[in-house]
């Protein structure tokens, strides 16, 4: 009697388990529904398990002879960001409606397309130069001096090329890693590129901007605020005691990627 009851309940339970478990894949192994994902992986043999350490230690080799100064500047930037820059950006966000901010960002981004065009020409990137030229034409005319960005909606996304990338394209090495005050991570080559881009912009004087902004320094302030507003990086966002090393690696690799692309 008891045995029968037991069997019946066991069967019932088993039936329920089966009804409950509709196998998602063929690889359902465990009775409780667990599909052990690690089971399918191939692992290195025990004596050859140092790939993470090898990769990471290699990645830490970035030429950084001015590390001590750079680190101090990193902390200076961090403080400046927290105590001056971000509060100002928050104020800017508070007092302006979002369409104004978008307009400002579009306007400066349109100005930035001039050095983008020059540099992609210098690298003989035909297709990209055409696209940037089209962007400039559409945005400056249809977009009313760049306040709107109709080009992106037409499928011509913003693509940035700076003189640092052009130098990299011609094989100029990175040079020592530099932490620039306020501007953030850079290296010798890209800092040089920054200077060239800046002087080119002044020389071309597109939309009369260089002249206007030398007369009215508040344009520069607005440009700086907009730059910070559109840059999503926050000091401390990696939340690691080794943020300096990580930023340095990511910057170096990101530039390498931009140059290769």
């Amino acid at each position: 009697m008891v045995k029968k009851l037991l069997i019946v309940t066991a069967l019932l339970a088993a039936g329920l388990v089966q009804a409950d478990e509709i196998p998602a894949r063929a690889s359902v192994i465990e009775a409780d529904g667990f599909t052990d994902p690690l089971k399918e992986l191939k692992f290195n043999p025990g004596l050859d398990q140092r790939e993470f350490e090898r990769s990471t230690l290699t990645a830490l080799n970035v030429y950084d002879p001015f590390e001590s100064v750079n680190r101090r500047l990193y902390h200076f930037n961090y403080r400046f960001d927290q105590w001056v820059f971000l509060p100002v950006v928050n104020g800017y966000r508070y007092i302006t409606p979002s369409f104004v901010r978008t307009g400002v960002s579009n306007f400066f981004s349109n100005l930035g397309d001039v050095p983008n065009l020059l540099n992609s020409l210098l690298q003989f990137k035909g297709k990209r130069s055409m696209e940037i030229t089209a962007r400039l034409l559409f945005n400056t005319t249809l977009g009313v001096a760049g306040l709107w960005d109709p080009a992106t909606k037409m499928g011509l996304p913003h693509q940035s090329e700076d003189f640092g990338q052009t130098l990299g394209f011609y094989g100029v090495p990175d040079g020592p890693y530099l932490m620039l005050p306020i501007l953030g991570p850079s290296n010798l080559r890209d800092t040089g590129g920054l200077v060239v881009d800046y002087s080119a912009e002044n020389w071309i004087n597109f939309l009369n901007m260089a002249e206007v902004s030398s007369d009215n320094p508040e344009v520069w302030v607005l440009r700086a605020i907009d730059k910070r507003y559109t840059t999503s990086f926050r000091y401390g966002q990696l939340n690691s005691p080794f943020e300096y090393e990580k930023v340095r690696y990511v910057y170096t690799e990101a530039r390498r990627l931009q140059i290769a692309e």
Partner: peptide
């Protein structure tokens, strides 16, 4: 036996299994 069966069933039957 009834208790055991009940336990087994409740444990197996009750969780909400979302099917793929």
């Amino acid at each position: 036996a009834a208790l055991l069966g009940g336990l087994l069933m409740s444990a197996a039957a009750s969780a909400v299994d979302v099917d793929a």
